[in-house]
Design a protein around this nucleic acid. Sequence first.
RNA 1: CCGCUCGUAGCACAACCGGAUAGUGCAACGGCCUUCUAAGCCGUAGGUUGCAGGUUCGAAUCCUGCCGGGCGGGCCA
Length: 562
Amino acid sequence: MKEALTSLLDQAMKALIAKEQVPEVPDLVPQIDHTKDPSHGDLATNLAMVLAKKARMAPRDLAAMIIDALPANDFVAKTEIAGPGFINFFLNQSSHVEVIRSILANGSEFGNSNKGGGRRAQVEFVSANPTGPLHVGHGRGAAIGDSLARLLVATGWSVHREFYYNDAGQQIVNLARSVQARAQGLTPEDSDWPEDGYRGTYITDLATAYQNKITVSAADRTITALGDIDNLDAIRDFAVAWLRREQDLDLKAFGVRFDEYFLESALYESGEVNDTVSALESAGHTYEQEGALWLRTSDFGDDKDRVMRKKDGEYTYFVPDVAYHLNKWQRGFERVINEQGADHHSTITRVRAGLQGLGKDIPAGWPEYVLHQMVTVMRDGAEVKLSKRAGSYVTLRDLIEWVGRDATRFFLAARSASSQLTFDIDLALAQSNENPVFYIQYAHARVCSVKRKALTEGADWTADAGLDHLNTLTTAEELALALLLAKFPEVVANAAQRLEPHDIANYLREVAAAFHGLYNAHKLVDADNKSQSLARISLAEATRQVIENGLNLLGVSAPESM
RNA sequence: CCGCUCGUAGCACAACCGGAUAGUGCAACGGCCUUCUAAGCCGUAGGUUGCAGGUUCGAAUCCUGCCGGGCGGGCCA
């Protein structure tokens, strides 16, 4: 509909330019928007206002001229000039309801588009190190990252989901020592407890499992414990597998899956880390100073240079990150989106600088980043600190157990990643029935209930049958809902473009509200008015389909009854 | 001290990246179930969009400066 209107305005402008009534402005980008207020029509454009200065005319006079130049068409019922110079378009009845036909025909595909054209994109998210259970921050990353992946799929990208983790660093050593200490009967209160050791109770479970020679399988590895508490390497391997399995269980319960688990250690084993450093050295972007090797990141927008190789010969953390992203580039991903916590923002400049320094013609803005701000967890009116080492943080599993998978996913994905989020456990517990996700799911379940009711009137009381009676949909509630449903493809495309899954959540709330309003204002299934009922069933089914498709983008279920 | 980021109703958050009267949920108050699911609907109340300037037809949105929160700025990851 928007496209048709754009075309109309385009033709009008061409005609006016041909008659030299307005000047040609090459980079003019007028907006055509859905209106907030129905009295402003269905769609509106600011064309006359953005053109007014160049045309040296009053916006309202210009608007009148544009309206006169609009070609004849069969979907605009009325145009109006309003406010400072908006042109408001009122669509006719059939233009409003035509979308129902399209939704029913396209089903679960409705809303999808093909901007990606099958090109390859990667979303890397969660990427938690296997040193403890997933916490709430990982949960936010999982919810947002998974939705991003779904949005990219819906807009035509071929998406690869990747989980990157370090299975060999100092933190893993701390983990192994902690488990060993537990197996030896020590507790974090003992003076012999390892410095920087992990204190959570899961360490105790791990030690017990190791001593019982348990076999564990994670998505990317399987291992049987040796039970020998003096063998630190064996403890480490088992601990990593055990925690990977724990994380897998959480992610599975959360409805999140990955195509690949990528190990940082692989980059060292393959020599890619050394190769990356050599490449940067021979490209002339490095220098030695005070016994360390530095990268001139300041040549690429950083505020100062960074150490790559420490005095002791070890690499700093961002060096494998650069090697990793070179690896991603060589795998052929046109887009890579990294979803991480905002505490990693300083790595963005370094990784991009390293990639630029390699001289591989990698675009300056590659990879892309979506950073989510911190999740603050409140309980009993006090903040619960998120700290792996303290072992007292709230886990993703806790949240799922308390408020359910759907509510947790929705809550964590329904807010802009750039805003800090307060997850009040007491509130979520006390008001679990009032959670916004239920409002949307309830609308979906209601439609299903309406359809069940309709079938009791007769086997031919179906949504498809209603397509022949769409002209009976004339009330304000019906037309407004239909227009809102027509926006869905645009909302999906826009959310994917902006990498903002929460747009979907907000949109769905609007759709649910419009449907609940219609439901209360009008009887949908009325035995005495069959044609109108059938049309309303079509509209309800179209609404259901859009809600299902939208919830699916968020990884939230669409129940048929509640 | 420097960088990034956020600041919107009592609380938690939106506002289609510059549009018309700043919205939604919770909390508060008043109504609506002999009728398709009341986990719903309708109504009332609640705001100097942190502060001060600037840009323009038009600013919560862009720019500058201040104030406040968060995260970074380690040869820690």
